[in-house]
Design a protein around this nucleic acid. Sequence first.
DNA 1: GGGTACATGTAATCAGTTACATGATTTA
DNA 2: TAAATCATGTAACTGATTACATGTACCC
Lengths: 178, 178
Amino acid sequence: MQPTWTTTSYVILGIIELRGPSTSYDLKRAVGNSVGHFWQFPHSMLYSEPARLATHGLLRTEEENEGRRRRTYSITDKGRTALAEWLKAPTDDVFQIRNVAEIKLFFAELVDPRYIISLAERQAEAHRTRLATYEEMKEKFGKHTHLKLRMVPLQLGMELERTALNFWESLLRDELSK
Amino acid sequence: MQPTWTTTSYVILGIIELRGPSTSYDLKRAVGNSVGHFWQFPHSMLYSEPARLATHGLLRTEEENEGRRRRTYSITDKGRTALAEWLKAPTDDVFQIRNVAEIKLFFAELVDPRYIISLAERQAEAHRTRLATYEEMKEKFGKHTHLKLRMVPLQLGMELERTALNFWESLLRDELSK
DNA sequence: GGGTACATGTAATCAGTTACATGATTTA
DNA sequence: TAAATCATGTAACTGATTACATGTACCC
């Protein structure tokens, strides 16, 4: 029986389709500075999941037979078809956010306000850092016209970061002026 | 040995601390129209997790002894302390977003543009719906001054939704005018 | 030549999810 | 009174995470 493929499965198929045959480590790097920003998972899944995809014929495996026996995965026609079908189906699913800071904020009334202030400070700082990372990425990859399309989701990422940054900063202003 | 408590554990502790002794179903409703928007989990966890918290003394259980034997959980001092400590510690963790649509967009070059258009349409619509829900919540709870504080995170939620909505709408405009 | 960072992988565990099941209330 | 919906719970499974482990390359 077919397992149900997860978003993570498709991310892996997609990356391999874009960049050709890849090892788990190649995937790690590729994910790290692209989709990894809106779909996180530990690198160990980049070893287990391709293996699973391969046993069902969506990927093909080639193993080095000397040295480290690195495995290189390539996409098969079956894999390509599955990926395309998934890509063509629009989703109503809106992003899921998992925001620890926001939960702490929700329970703010249970602790002294100064803890909320330091929370807000740290959050603002963290968002600034992220934003800087994104800006660097844009700078670095944005000039390659063939990558233009892939910059589009990055744009959303940046805007969300900016929104969050504004939120925490204005919270600080309001809080401190009370 | 103490298990490590997850954010979900603290969400449960927090809700019970805010509203007093609660059954799993009470928690379900309470979570549903508050923290549930930035920390999702299935209702079955509202049965298993309080049980786990109770075996470690952070919650106390009372079981009805007739009828359905509903279990009511109350927070203990130990639970309250654990919660407070967690709340007081600021996080550098910035929200994690899991956005299937954004991944499909990232792989856009692999499919015909019309699929991206319908993706964007559906996403815009979905965000509009969410935004409407949030606005209703604000309307409904915003007038109770004692709930004012709890509306703050909702504000961030709304702003993030608006940002996303703008993003998809402007994508549609650009795409269609090409 | 020793330290540190990168590269590569496995294994155990568990949080989280899905699926199922049934009792009580409301509504048509 | 049937059907639908709300309320309440359990059990099995597995994707995801954590932790461990070791090889290779570079650099000070």
